[in-house]
Amino acid sequence: MMSFSKIALLTAALALSACAQGGFGARGANTVDLNAAQGALDPASPAYFNQTVGDRVLFAVDQSTLTPEARATLAGQAQWLMTNAAFTAIIEGHADEQGTREYNLALGARRANAVEEFLVSQGVAANRLRTISYGKERPIEICSEESCYQQNRRAVTVIAAGAGA
């Protein structure tokens, strides 16, 4: 039984890393199915971080200010990162398609940085975090309506193995 749950965990972690690589905050359907089959998630797993803590925060149009809801999510992220010191994170900043390409790159950098600064202010070591902006290059929702745009104006904290730079 012990070895079975170890294998299950490994499988979940593998699915997760594939998800992170395919990336840009897409919630991989495989990951969800696997974990549903396994019941409760290991609180120390990246899958737990993604699904229970919440790996993303959303922003208002053309803004990089953290909403109260975003701060609550990020406080949970900081807690998790401090508890699970074997992981690092890359924070992806994204924008919706309603902006010019290079401005959106700069805006995504601002959003990722707002998240990084908050996590550091909560006690996460800065050398465990890195930011990247994708601007409008990687929408997660593809319709051209506000319902999609609001999901795309996001910063996603992608967990990776490693103790930090």
């Binding site: 990089s64 950098a109 601002r110 940085n113 930011t131 902006s133």
Partner: peptide, 9 residues
Amino acid sequence: YSESVGGNS
């Protein structure tokens, strides 16, 4: 060109 340092371009 633009360079972004600490979120500031």
